[in-house]
Write a protein that binds this DNA or RNA. Structure first.
Lengths: 136, 136
DNA sequence: CTACGGATTCCAGTCGAGTGGAAGGTCAAG
DNA sequence: CTTGACCTTCCACTCGACTGGAATCCGTAG
């Protein structure tokens, strides 16, 4: 299968595939006589795994390190699990941050709604955002 | 107040302040006779607002558009509220994504723990990540 | 006077994950 | 035989939010 088809099957562009290859995330495939990249079904699996892993928020370099574990096979699965667990922890941290931000913003929005819209006329102030009581 | 003091008061570097000015997020302040930027207390408020807004996940260009609303004063607060509400929606989307990712990853980790670590010996496979049943 | 901490400008680089485009080679259809 | 879709390489650029560093100037303490 050529690069375009692989891309279509996995939902990425040919350019992205070449990019992944360039950073070592995908192995160099065999080539046809005319120099075209020629992929097997393994490539589909691998590329889909990359996409899946990426969807969970792993960076490409984290994914690369997981895939490296696969290929060396030397280190145990515990390396992989450690990476995953670490990542779950960072997701939790991100979620906490977002929750905080959300609370802040809804507070802000609520305040905005309570204000008389007609009173927002001072060209140098928007009450929603420049209220002193709100400013840290 | 000079740039360093302003930075200290707001928890940013002088470099960041100049950067904000360069992208139009902060107005050009008056200068001392010797060319130093000379800020008033307004700058502290504005910069702190920027930091606060940023902490909630707004990008600098979103913040810029909110601050623009302030300075033109033409459009009503509803513009600001709309932006905020839109941002809250995007936070919710992010949180859903993270929750999905988290579920995926913990599944993966659980599977990893259930596997006999000693069985992870095939140099070309890490069972945690290359199990066909898991692959989309 | 000199040293030192801050200030100034401007240009360049970082990270992550690609994307754009030029210049050219290949293959199947009409 | 030409057209058009697809492939190749390579180099440069994007976005966001800074950060680093060079060269130079200002202000004050010793």
């Amino acid at each position: 299968m050529k690069i375009g088809e692989l891309g279509d099957r996995c939902g990425v562009t040919a350019k992205t595939i070449r990019y992944y290859e360039s950073i070592g995330l995908l192995d160099e495939p065999t080539r046809t006589a005319s120099g075209y990249r020629d992929y097997g079904d393994d490539a589909v699996k691998r590329l889909r795994f990359i996409r899946d892993a990426q969807a969970t928020g792993l960076t490409l370099s984290e994914i690369a390190s997981v895939l490296e574990l696969k290929s060396t096979g030397e280190r145990s699965c515990s390396h992989t699990t450690a990476l995953i667990e670490q990542h779950v922890a960072s997701i939790d941290a991100q979620m906490r941050q977002l929750a905080d931000a959300r609370r802040e913003l809804t507070l802000l929005a609520d305040r905005a709604k309570r204000l008389d819209p007609a009173s927002c006329t001072d060209p140098n102030r928007c009450q929603v955002i420049s209220d002193e009581r709100h400013m840290a």
